[in-house]
Amino acid sequence: MNKKQEISNIQLQRSDLIIIRKMIPENSRVLDLGCGSGRLLYALKQSKHVKVLGVEREQSKILECAARGIPVIQTSLDGGLADFPDQTFDYVILSRTIQSVMRPDILLQEMLRVGKRGIVSYMNFGHINARIQLVFGNFPVNRNLPLPWYDTPTIRPGTIDDFKKLCHKLGIRIIQEIPLTNEGDFLPRLTCFSSNLFASNSIMVISKENEVIQ
C-alpha cells in the first residue's frame, strides 16, 4: 500500500468504504448516493482520478463536500434519480443508505438506469447477534446496529437474504459479494449461505448485465 492510499484509508475509517475504494477502477465515473461529507469520493478523486459526483440531503454535509471540492447535488433519494440521465456512470454507490429510503426497490432500479453497476453496502439484520436479540423479543440494538427502532434512519431493515431475493425479483444480478464481519475483516471463505448469518455488513456489486466478476 503506498502512502497516498494509506492516507485515503485513514480518512475513510469505515471498513466498507475502504473496500469500495479498492473496487473502483481508475478514471471511472462514480455517483455516490448519500455521500455524506464526501470522504469516499474525495479519496477516489485524489488517488484514482475518478470523475465523481455526490448526492446528499443535508445542507451541512453539502458544505463539507464543497470544502473538499467534491461536486454534490442536494436532493432526497426518496424523490428518485429523475434528474440523472441514463447510463452516465460506471458505478453508482449506495453505502449503508438503502435501508433509509422509502422505496429501496425503486432506487435499486434507478441506480442501474443511471449507471452500469451498483455497489450496495447493506447492513445485515440477519446477523446472528440480531437474531438472538429478536429471539428474546427485542428489535436488535448492538455494535453494528446501534440505534433503537424509534430513532434509527433504518426504516427498511432487512437481511442479506432479503436483499438477494429482492434483486432476483427485479432481475438484478449480484455479480460480486464481499461479506464483512464485526471487526471489518474480509471474509473470503464465507459463502452466500453463511454471510446471512455471520456478516454484519455485506458489499454487493449489482448489474443488469450478464457478467460475473472473477
Binding site: 459526483l53 445542507q59 453539502i62 461536486p71 454534490v72 447535488i73 442536494q74 434528474d83 440521465p85 452516465t88
Partner: peptide, 19 residues
C-alpha cells in the same frame, strides 16, 4: 433544480445546494 437537471444531462460538473 431544472437547471441542475439540464446540466447533469450535459455532464457538466455541478454542485447544487438548496439553502
Amino acid at each position: 433544480q431544472e437547471l441542475v437537471k439540464a446540466l447533469l444531462k450535459n455532464a457538466n460538473d455541478v454542485t447544487y445546494c438548496n439553502i
